[in-house]
Design a binder for these strands. Structure first.
Lengths: 339, 339
DNA sequence: CTGAAAGCGCTTACAG
DNA sequence: CTGAAAGCGCTTACAG
């Protein structure tokens, strides 16, 4: 194996200085008036020896790590892992790599992670912000490092974010239920201050109020799946006459379907279903379930567009871009017109 | 904001040398005979000022980055993202972070990534090896850096790996079908040399041969979902009399279910199904689908146990651990006894 | 018990 | 057109 070659080796071999080699390697030959002949010699030797700069040394010197920190609740949630993949693709194209970690609903851990990322001189951040970390994130932003939030924004914090139009998309979905004849619609969310969840609820309420319908909302005190199912069971027992239900997130929907199974409620005949976040299960369920699909590709694209333009200086750190993207309502037979 | 504090600042403030501060911070106070009083002063100031070492400088000096490279086909595949989450948890406990990237079936990209990881002085690797990268991986292993393969091993390469017992688990699943009265079983896999896929096929064949059954195997030339469905349609049309089918992987099963839908085959009545890899969809499908569940937690645990013991020197780099874990057959109604 | 100094491998302001 | 030298912030062998 090639015992790590360094700039000095190249310089010595060619009887020139490290400075010149460094300039050539970094494409500054022209700018620095290096003669074509010398530049070519360097390039040739670099190719021949397969020289690769030590990025650690480079980072220490320049203060740039070419690493982006990606922080989410749980990387194994489909929505997040899909974003992760797309972000990584874009980042790789520009020489950045992704360092990720899951906060797993643990704020202490999240704070630590932020600190660790900072120590590692991460150049930029992509974060789905856990509740309660608002002030930490403000501190981070104040250090003049680019931070793009996604999935949820935080009212009152001036920063870049890319989110789905939660309010509007749930409004549409609820309206779709009303149009199809449903009148007693339940909305199942979690007890939280997370903005995206509040927005989804708001969209629901707008329709309910406009149509003078009953406001059947369950806010689950979410601990785990089991506990969540227990609360849903109670809710469905009390509200026997629901003719439709909207689940405000992927994992809530999963628990909802489990609840139906346990209660022997057959969505096919008894109740219409809409879920926020589309995933394969919904397409294959019997009946196939109507879902609000977040525009994952567009979300990832926008995140990276903002982040990269800040990273390469095209966009001022202090100038904040806020992108709200429309979702798609995939109508399936779980919400057929009521007869 | 605290304009980054460094060791020198602490040393100056306390009128001692950077050496002493460094020793104390790295817990070598005793070993280096630093007086308790001095050590305490340092610790106090570190706490007060919230000093955090610059990990870049540390890495450059020590040659250790405290970063683990995680390389898979696609981080958004549920199996991989779940492993990612678990690995990250374990790694974090030991001060390591995960740098990931998806190779997306692109060997050139995979080679590049390996190179990039090397430049970044990744301390260790967790890899689901793409086909055709065998020699690259051997080179990597020869650089004496710990590499743990998972999901698939490569016969002939001496390295650490953690895999599921693919052969045995498919053998069991196939036997289960035979026991329940199925006699014309199809096996759908992809055209590949990937060892885990070959092993799954081998497990199937063992049962087929032992019972003198017909060997109905489809090896899909996998390009994309659409193309894959086309090939399955043809297969099912030719083999009208199949009474059961085993899908050799998650994504193949998804395409299989789509094919059934398009062909109007109702698995409920017409055909038994088994899928490799268990995921929520299978549990909720109608009928619920029998699945071979890989022991994800155990896989992740074993990977990290091996990797960490090599990283901290408890295990020789040259000593290779190879772990084969049993899978669980989750029997559901898609494979009920034939009547 | 403690410190001065070298060095990890780069980049870049400065000098010529 | 090119180079000597300082410095990024650590760690550690060596000296006392």
């Amino acid at each position: 194996m090639n015992t790590k070659i360094k700039i000095k080796d190249i310089a010595d071999e060619l009887n020139i200085s490290s400075t010149t080699v460094s300039f050539v390697i970094n494409g500054k030959a022209k700018e620095k008036n290096i003669s074509k002949a010398v530049a070519q010699k360097v390039l040739d030797l670099v190719a021949e020896w397969g020289y690769q700069p030590n990025s650690l040394a480079k980072s220490l010197r320049t203060g740039k790590s070419k690493i982006i920190g990606f922080l989410v609740d749980d990387i194994s949630e489909p929505f997040f892992s899909r974003i992760a993949r797309l972000i990584d693709e874009k980042a790789s194209e520009h020489g950045y790599k992704i360092l990720f970690s899951s906060t797993r609903n643990n704020n202490e851990k999240a704070k630590e992670l932020l600190q660790i990322f900072r120590d590692r001189h991460v150049d930029g951040y992509v974060i789905a912000l856990p509740e309660g970390l608002e002030s930490e994130i403000e501190k981070l932003i104040n250090t003049q490092v680019p931070v793009v939030l996604f999935d949820r924004y935080v009212p009152g914090i001036e920063t870049d974010y890319v989110v789905t139009n939660n309010d509007e998309s749930v409004f549409e979905a609820t309206q779709h239920l009303v149009n199809n004849g449903y009148r007693n619609i339940g909305f199942i969310t979690i007890e939280t201050e997370q903005q995206q969840m509040l927005d989804r609820l708001a969209g629901f309420k707008r329709v309910i109020e406009a149509n003078n319908l009953k406001n059947n909302v369950l806010k689950i005190d979410y601990q785990n799946s089991e506990n969540s199912i227990k609360q849903m069971k109670k809710f469905f027992e009390i509200n026997q006459n629901l003719d439709a239900v909207i689940f405000a997130a992927n994992y809530i929907c999963m628990d909802g379907l489990r609840t139906f199974k346990q209660l022997n409620i057959n969505p096919l005949n008894n109740i219409a279903i809409v879920s926020f976040d589309d995933f394969e299960l919904l397409e294959f369920y019997n009946p196939p379930i109507t879902a609000i699909a977040q525009p994952v590709e567009q979300i990832a694209e926008n995140i990276m567009k903002i982040l990269l333009s800040k990273l390469n200086g095209q966009l001022q750190i202090s100038e904040h871009k806020q992108v709200v993207l429309p979702a798609l309502l995939n109508v399936r037979s779980s919400t057929l017109k009521r007869v």
